[in-house]
Computed example of a mutant assay.
Amino acid sequence: MKLYYSPGACSLASHITISELGIEADTVKVDLKTHTTESGEDFLAINKKGYVPYLKIDETKNLSEGVAILQYLADLHPEKDLTPEVGTFERYQLQEWLTFISSELHKAIGTFFTPDALSEVGVEQVTKRIKARLQIVETRLTSNEFLLGGTFTIADAYLFTILSWCKMMSIDISEYTNITVYIEKIANRPSVQTAMKEEGLLG
C-alpha cells in the first residue's frame, strides 16, 4: 500500500488514519505545484486528477478521494473503532460529518489557498460562512469529546486536518473554546504526532 501526500494538505487525514491503525504503508511526497513526486516521477501519470490523497492499494486497485480513502482504511481494521459498523445509524452519522467537513469546511477554507481568486468582499463572505459552520462544530463539541461522542474516528482526523488550515490562513478561531481544546487534544495523539513528523510539520 502506498499513500501519496503533500505536507499539511487534506491527505494528512489519511496519513493520521494509517498511523492510528498501525498499517504498514509507504508514503510518497508530492509537489502539487509541479505535479512531481520527491523521486521526480510525473504525478499526473500516476493520478490524472493531480491532487492528493491518492492511495495505491495494489497493482490494480487505487482510490483518489479523501473521504473514500478514510472509510476504506478504517474498514480494514474495524476492531480499532475508527468508523462505526456498516449498516448502523452511527455509520450514517459518520458519513454526515464527513460530508459536512468536505462540502462546508474543506471547500470554504481551501479557497484561501488561492487568495487572488477572492475579492475583498469575497473574503468577507467566505469568512462569514466559515464562522457559521464552525459554530455548528463548536456546539457539537459542547457535550461531546469527539464528533461522534466519546470515540475518535476518521471524521476527527479529517476535521483536525482542515481546522489546522485556519492558522495557516490567519483565520482567527480563538473565540471557539471547545474547538480550541479539541484541536489541542487531537494534536497530542501519538498517531497525529507521528504523521505530522513524517510530513515535516513538527520538529
Score class of each variant (00 low, 15 high):
Val86Gln: 12
Asn47Gln: 15
Ala68Arg: 03
Arg91Met: 02
Lys49Tyr: 05
Pro7Glu: 02
Gly8Ser: 03
Lys33Tyr: 13
Asp81Gly: 09
Thr88Ser: 05
Ile16Val: 15
Ser102Arg: 06
Leu12Cys: 05
Thr99His: 15
Tyr5Glu: 07
Leu94Tyr: 00
Lys80Ser: 09
Val28Phe: 08
Thr36Ile: 14
Glu96Gly: 10
Thr36Leu: 13
Phe43Leu: 05
Phe43Trp: 06
Gln71Arg: 08
Leu55Val: 05
Ile18Pro: 01
Val52Cys: 00
Pro53Met: 08
Asp42Asn: 03
Thr36Lys: 14
Lys33Phe: 13
Thr17Tyr: 07
Thr37Glu: 10
His77Pro: 03
Tyr54Trp: 14
Arg91His: 03
Glu20Asn: 11
Ser102Asp: 02
Ala9Gln: 02
Asp31Ser: 01
Ser11Gln: 01
Pro53Ala: 09
Thr37Asn: 07
Ala68Leu: 09
Thr36Pro: 06
Ala68Trp: 03
Ser6Met: 00
Thr99Phe: 14
Asp31Ala: 07
Thr17Trp: 05
Leu12Asp: 01
Tyr72Ala: 06
His106Trp: 10
Lys56Phe: 01
Asp42Val: 05
Gly66Trp: 12
Glu24Ala: 12
Ser14Ala: 11
Leu63His: 03
Asp58Glu: 05
Phe89Asn: 13
Gln71Tyr: 03
His15Glu: 10
Phe100Ile: 01
Ile57Leu: 04
Gly66Tyr: 14
Glu24Gly: 06
Gly66His: 13
Phe100Arg: 01
Gly87Pro: 03
Gly87Arg: 09
Tyr51Ile: 14
Ser39Gly: 06
Thr83Ala: 15
Gly22Asp: 11
Glu104Ala: 01
Lys29Ser: 07
Pro53Ser: 05
Glu59Asn: 15
Leu73Arg: 02
Thr36Ala: 11
Asp42Glu: 06
Ser6His: 00
Thr37Ser: 11
Thr27Ala: 11
Glu38Pro: 04
Lys33Pro: 11
Thr83Glu: 11
